[in-house]
Write a protein that binds this DNA or RNA. Structure first.
Lengths: 196, 196
DNA sequence: ACCTGAACACCGTTCAAGT
DNA sequence: ACCTGAACACCGTTCAAGT
């Protein structure tokens, strides 16, 4: 029998860690503040000191997800000689994150009904998009990407990236189809539909 | 004071209609079986005759959404002389549906934690993808789309379509950015990133 | 066949009170 | 500053009973 510990300031972090574990193992429907509190050995009212309501905890979880995805994508950009290689690395990293964090990615992009509250999350997503735009800008400088407003190419690239990962997450594409489709997606991002 | 009506078999339909309205007006968090029953003037236990649990109602709602999106996309395919025109019509129709049914589209692609239960929904999404693949196949026959396995081009096209709509729905792109970005997305789907 | 009413075991949120 | 315990108004689900 352990004495009741005070969570000396780390309850907030403990709630987030535990919440992500529950999200992964039991799905978003099973996420309850009271159960979280029970799991961590605090009273059911304790979480409210750190998150004003359940949505605030979900938002914090989503934001942490964006930060980790950001790091994963930034790390993927070093490798690759050509534009297509670097693009492939970005897609690979995004898809890997999606497969390893399906429920979390879903949460990150879930429609919040209060638009003001999710401003921070939208900014985080746009920061991700900026990485795709930056990659395209590099490609333009090296002549591997066609001329034109960089957003006109970078935004659709990010869109394809996200759509592919989203289909992986929602099982529209099976894990095998994701693996075998990766090269086709990259080729399409580079060449589009049109004949050479 | 109206006498308590029996819903002579249409309670199921009434629940779905009302649920979609609540989803649209108050968001998914506000969707409660008990409130739905109250709104329709039946006891809180009545819905269980028609949906075994809340998830079953959500699944039925999502499935109805796929059917309507299916019709909207099928209707969009008549118009357009060139491949690019028909592709544009498809994107336009998908985006219009997304903007008009944001919460519903989100629900349609939300990760279900029970993979078996959502088999029907996955099939519905794949039927949508088949429309993109068919469009690409037509383009190949007319020589407007490059050679190669049709899925290698059709799947990424559907991916871009969905990713763009998904960003519209989750406010990563504002309504204005969606409008002004449409042409860029279509051009990218046709030409990709590479120089001509 | 379809619905009611009561019951059960949960929720999220708030707030005085404790340490 | 941080947490507890009780209270409130809700849930989803089940099941005997009614029509």
């Amino acid at each position: 029998m352990q004495t009741r510990r005070y969570h000396h300031g780390d309850l907030r972090a403990a709630l987030l860690t535990r919440a992500e574990r529950t999200l992964r193992e039991k799905g978003p429907g099973a996420l309850s503040l009271r159960e979280l509190a029970r799991d961590l050995g605090v009273s059911h009212a304790a979480p409210s000191r750190h998150f004003k309501d359940k949505q605030a905890l979900l938002d914090a979880l989503a934001l942490a997800g964006f930060e980790r995805l950001d790091e994963a994508l930034a790390g993927s950009r070093a490798a690759g000689e050509t534009f297509a290689d670097r693009l492939g690395g970005l897609v690979r990293a995004y898809v890997d994150f999606a497969l390893a964090n399906a429920e979390l990615l879903d949460l990150m992009y879930t429609v919040k009904h209060d638009p003001a509250a999710s401003e921070e999350l939208i900014t985080a997503a746009q920061r991700l998009g900026a990485m795709a735009v930056e990659l395209v800008a590099e490609g333009q400088r090296s002549g591997e990407v066609r001329e034109g407003p960089v957003d006109d190419i970078g935004m659709p690239v990010f869109t394809t990236l996200h759509g592919f990962a989203s289909f992986a997450v929602s099982s529209v594409l099976s894990a095998e189809e994701v693996e075998s489709g990766l090269d086709a997606v990259i080729a399409y991002m580079v060449r589009g539909c049109a004949p050479s």
